[in-house]
Amino acid sequence: MGIMDQFLQQLINGISLGSIYALIALGYTMVYGIIKLINFAHGDIYMVGAYIGFFCITIMNWPVLPALLVSMLLTGILGMLIERFAYRPLRSAPRISVLITAIGVSFFLEYTMMYFVTPQPRTFPSLLDDAAYHIGPFIINNQQIMIFAITIILMAILTYIVQYTKVGKAMRAVSFDTETAQLMGINSNRIISVTFGIGSALAAAAGVLVGIYYNSIDPLMGIMPGLKAFVAAVLGGIGILPGAAAGGIILGIIEALVSGFISSTFRDAAAFAILILVLLFKPSGLLGKNTNEKV
């Protein structure tokens, strides 16, 4: 394989992985935008989504699509419950308390899941045959096509919700200025809850897709992708939806290129190095605006 072919192949792999990051990053960025919380439990929500999908497919013998939808629905509800019972009571508490609570929720999800399903990785059944297609210079397999398709559809739906529906407008209002939104009669608690629901559902979709793509899931699978997705959100400009999507894809591509051309052991380091460069040179992210404090 020539270097160019290899590059194009890594590009496709990178976009696949990046789509997953993007779906998780969207939830991160929405939650951060609205309550300024780095929800460290978000990666574990994605893990729960993967397990729900896994059980739907293996135990219930459902096809992919219903499994995906049910996983999104249940995980969305889980996200709302977590917000309601763990984060909402701390709405006026210091930021660090909420952050520590998020770490607590994260540990709780990981190890309670581990208690029930054991730490052993589970093998996701291969649902699609491994057929690969040549499209121009690219080679794409079935799994990747499915990831692209589902990611694009979900992002389109999300864009529609945020831009054109009443809930979406309220979400933007609350994230712009919670107090003013509340004065204008928006029930900010309800909007925050919906935000967690949507974000968690997107993470669940990412979880199921990863199961299908890599064939393996385990209770600690959410830690690294969760962190990477946060990096992606910061990269694109935290709180900005297109930024999270772009950040995710960029991060995925960079990781794929680093593992393909340098060494896969450095791919995590590459992600963090990029994060730090972005933070130092453009802390508001690629798509963000700089702000300064009035004295």
Binding site: S97, T101, V105, F107, F108, T112, M114, Y115
Partner: peptide, 20 residues
């Protein structure tokens, strides 16, 4: 080990609720 971490998590959350 698993139970340990779950308990740990609950203690942590309780602490943040009642003694931040």
């Amino acid at each position: 080990p698993e139970l340990r971490m779950s308990i740990y998590a609950v203690v942590l959350i309780a602490l943040m609720f009642y003694r931040p």
